[in-house]
Structures are given as structure tokens and as C-alpha cells.
Write a protein that binds this DNA or RNA. Structure first.
Length: 481
DNA sequence: GTTAGGG
DNA sequence: CCCTAAC
């Protein structure tokens, strides 16, 4: 697939359709052959017409027989085709091809055989006054392509002079740029990041195409040669990094099993990418599942199957919690600073893929009463809003509670406390509270909130707030501070 | 990095 | 609990 554009360019470009001197090419061809290429030696003896070629020649003037000879001289083999047009084009293409080859060896310049220099032979071709060949007919287009591709194969396999060029050639650019242009036209491997974000299937597909386009180079040696990445779970920062078995052509190379969606920032990018790969989400899920299959024991239990941990959490002791890492940290930056974070939290943290393609922690560890009390105590001691301080000083042993968690919980407590009325008989008004908060605590929360001039969450509780005394929290009470 | 606030 | 703007 990659070869087609180059081929079409070769065929439809200036070489054939524009004026050029066959004589120049023919001589260069001969020089090229005599100079080094041994693949077509057989045709030297049968090049009678070339010796008498003048500076310019028009294939139109040649008979079919002569065309046959030229053909033989060009390709080193006979042809039985009687079609003059076909022969002309075929020869033209062949010579064009040789233009390439000869550029790398010898060049005819001013009727002298010159060792290949920096001069662009193609420029000579273009500049030389020549008789125009008949324009390539549309009806021959495909034939032209095929024949040209055959020629490429021939040159690659027999002469070997073009091996490694992958058939992509920019025949006639200015010489200094030719290499670059050639390289540029080659299909580039996507950037590492892009690869990382590609779903595995697509990447495999891509690899397949790429490899097939490079003449079916053996995959396995290539892959295994690409310096063995350790096929094991590496440990970074004392954390186990999940490796995923990536099938680089079945080579079994393992790469870190990073989620393709990082927390926080670049979700937009990923989503933009997923728009181009609509099935990306599903494939990614498949990938993750695969990862689980390979290293199921090390995966967060149920993370793929979206099994939410049922809350037996309140029964757990803080000692159990300590072992857990509190928060995922960026780790395993795969080579570059791609910013991909890895959710390597062990323990009860369950990552869940949201509908948007993001990943949520879905931690949900219910707040225990002791935690709430500690929070209230911390707020009363350090003040609401100094969450990091509270976290550091009062929640040092609760590694799974982040300062944000404290803040959120306090907010909820605030909401609950102001929603609560003495009529509720000691518990908050939720129908099925996960953990009924005792009235004293709620009262204490409310007291603290009023102390700190905290505004209760704007909701329907405003009426309740008015009902319970009619005193607004906006009123600072001089007695407290 | 922390905090506040919306979701 | 997540996300993100604002600091």
C-alpha cells in the first residue's frame, strides 16, 4: 500500500510524460551496465542500436523489432509483445528506472562516462532537449503500474542495487534532497506515544502492514533483536508495574501495561484519538482483559470486570489500610515524559472504566465513625480548610484518605449537619444512610461550621436552616473565633 | 501541591 | 469519589 503512491508518482511524473532524451538515458544505461552492474551483462552484446544512437532519439521512430532490441537492452530479456505503444512505455519506464540505478553508479555527462558525482542526473534529463514521448494513455495506466512494479522487483532481486529502498523512490528530486525526501515518503512509524495510545489490535495491524510492505522481513528475528525488554514485572519505586504482553508480531515482547487514559489532564487528547479509532475503547478493554489474563494475580481484583468492592470496609481496621498506597503516583514513565500515569494502587482500589473512557478510582471506602470523629476533631483543631494539615497530623495513619477526601467528607458532614433537625431523632434524614452520623457529631459539625463562618451547601436546606432557629450562619458569632 | 467547588 | 479551576 505504501508503494503505490510512489509508484504512481514514478510513472506519472515528469519522466515519462515529459520530454527527455532517450539518448542520454541509453548511454547512461550502457555506462551503468559496463560500469558495475553485472546483472544485465547479457544485454551488452545485444545493444546494437545504442551504439548508433544519436543524442536524441524518439522511440516512435523505431520499429517493433528495434523496440524489442531496446527492450532487451533495457531489461535484459526478450519480449514477445508486439504492441508498439506498450513497448515504448515499457522501455520508457525501464529507462526511467535505470536512471535511478545509474545515478548511484555512473553518469554520462558531456558524452563522457563520469563516475557518479553529486550532479543530479535527473536534472540533466529534464533539461536536455528531447522529443516528447507520447503521453501515457490512461488505458495503459494499470499496466504501467504493474510493469513498473515488476521492474522494481527485478532490480531489487537481481541487481540488488535497490534493495532496502522499500520500493519508495523519489527519482528526480534534486540530489541532496533526494535522500531526505525518500526518507520522508517512507511511512513513518507512529510516535511512541501514538503507539501507546493505539489499541493493540490496530498496532498489530499496522505492524503487519509495515512488515509486509518491507518485503516480508522475518518478524521474529526483528522483534527479538529489538533489545529484549524484560519480560517480567519490573518494580519501580517499590511498586509493581504491570507488564502487558504485547504481541509484536507474536514476539512476546512485554511492555508496561499502562492505561491509555491518564488521570486528570489529557483525557481530551485521548478522546480525540478515540474519535479516530471508534472501536478503541472496546479494544482497550480487551487489552486490559488480556493483561489480566496474563498477569491476573497481580491485577487489581475485579478491576476489569468492574466488580465493585462491596463495602465490607467499615469492618476493616486501620492497620489493614496502612498497607495500601494512598494515591496513585506517576510511575513507569515509558521512556519519555508521556505523562501517562499508572494506576498501580494495590489493595482495595478498584479502577473502573467510565462511559467516557476515563478511569475512576471508585475507591469508595465508607467513612467510619472514628474517621468522622477524627475529622471533626481535626477541623476543630486546625480549622476547616487546612485539609492537608489535618491529613498530615490527624490522618497520618489513614493513608487512603486524601486531603481532598477530608474536604469532601467535611462538606458532606456540613450538608448533613445543616439538613439535620432535632426532629430527626438523632440520625440524619437519609433513608438508608451508610453510616448514621450521631446527632452529637452533627451538632458539633454545625457548631464548627458556624465557628468558621462556613456556609452550608446551597440546597433546599436553606428553609430548614431558617426553620432551625432562623439564625443564618452568615452571622458571625462574636463569642467564637 | 492545595483548596474549593461542581459533577 | 472524580475532576478541575484557581491559587
Amino acid at each position: 500500500m505504501e508503494m503505490v503512491p510512489s509508484r504512481t508518482q514514478c510513472s506519472s511524473d515528469n519522466h515519462v510524460t515529459q520530454s527527455w532524451s532517450v539518448g542520454e538515458h541509453s548511454k547512461r544505461l550502457v555506462g551503468s551496465i559496463e560500469g558495475g552492474s553485472s546483472s544485465s551483462v547479457g544485454c551488452i552484446s545485444s545493444k546494437p542500436d545504442f551504439s548508433k544512437l544519436k543524442d536524441e532519439i524518439c522511440l516512435d521512430n523505431l520499429s517493433i523489432k528495434e523496440l524489442h532490441e531496446v527492450f532487451k537492452a533495457t531489461f535484459g530479456r526478450d519480449t514477445t509483445v508486439k504492441d508498439k505503444q506498450w513497448l515504448k512505455r515499457r522501455i520508457a519506464m525501464g529507462l526511467t528506472n535505470f536512471c535511478d540505478v545509474s545515478t548511484a553508479t555512473f553518469v554520462i555527462k558531456d558524452n563522457k562516462l563520469v563516475k557518479k558525482g553529486k550532479e543530479d542526473s535527473c536534472n540533466n534529463v529534464n533539461l536536455s532537449t528531447g522529443i516528447e514521448l507520447p503521453a501515457v494513455g490512461v488505458e495503459y495506466h494499470e499496466d504501467l503500474l504493474n510493469s513498473h512494479s515488476h521492474q522494481i522487483d527485478e532490480h531489487q532481486t537481481t541487481s540488488g542495487m535497490r534493495s532496502g529502498n522499500n520500493g519508495v523512490e523519489d527519482n528526480c528530486g534534486s540530489e541532496p534532497l533526494a535522500a531526505d525526501q525518500r526518507a520522508a515518503k517512507r511511512v513513518r512509524r507512529p510516535t511512541k506515544r501514538y503507539i501507546e495510545e493505539l489499541s493493540e489490535a490496530e498496532y498489530k495491524e499496522y505492524r503487519g502492514r509495515l512488515i509486509s510492505s518491507t518485503k516480508n522481513i522475518e518478524i521474529r528475528p526483528l522483534a527479538s533483536k529489538s533489545h529484549a525488554r524484560p519480560a517480567r514485572n519490573v518494580s519501580l519505586e517499590g511498586r509493581t508495574v504491570m507488564m502487558r504482553l504485547d504481541s509484536f508480531g507474536g514476539s512476546g515482547i512485554q511492555v508496561p501495561c499502562v492505561y491509555r487514559v491518564r488521570r486528570s489532564q489529557p483525557r481530551k487528547n485521548v478522546m480525540a484519538l478515540l474519535k479516530f479509532h471508534p472501536s478503541g475503547i472496546g479494544r482497550t478493554a480487551t487489552l486490559v482483559r488480556k493483561c489480566l489474563d496474563v498477569h491476573g494475580s497481580q491485577m487489581d481484583n475485579g478491576s476489569v470486570n468492574k466488580v465493585l468492592k462491596t463495602k465490607s470496609a467499615p469492618e476493616q481496621t486501620p492497620q489493614q489500610y496502612v498497607a495500601e498506597s494512598k494515591k496513585e503516583r506517576p510511575s513507569a514513565e515509558l521512556g519519555q515524559n508521556m505523562g501517562l500515569k499508572q494506576d498501580t494502587s494495590d489493595g482495595n482500589v478498584v479502577t473502573v472504566r467510565t462511559a467516557k473512557g476515563g478511569i475512576r478510582r471508585k475507591h469508595h471506602r465508607a467513612w467510619t465513625l472514628s474517621e468522622v470523629m477524627k475529622l471533626v476533631e481535626g477541623v476543630s483543631k486546625y480549622g476547616a480548610g487546612r485539609w492537608s494539615e489535618i491529613k498530615r497530623l490527624a490522618f497520618a495513619s489513614y493513608s487512603y484518605r486524601t486531603s481532598v477526601d477530608l474536604k469532601d467528607k467535611w462538606r458532606n458532614l456540613l450538608k448533613a449537619s445543616f439538613a439535620w433537625t432535632p426532629v430527626d431523632k438523632g440520625v440524619n434524614s437519609r433513608k438508608h444512610p451508610a453510616m448514621p452520623i450521631p446527632a452529637p457529631i452533627l451538632l458539633r459539625v454545625r457548631e464548627l461550621a458556624e465557628m468558621h463562618s462556613q456556609v452550608p451547601p446551597p440546597s433546599h436546606c436553606a428553609s430548614k436552616q431558617a426553620a432551625c432557629g432562623g439564625r443564618s450562619v452568615y452571622e458571625t458569632r462574636p463569642g467564637y473565633s
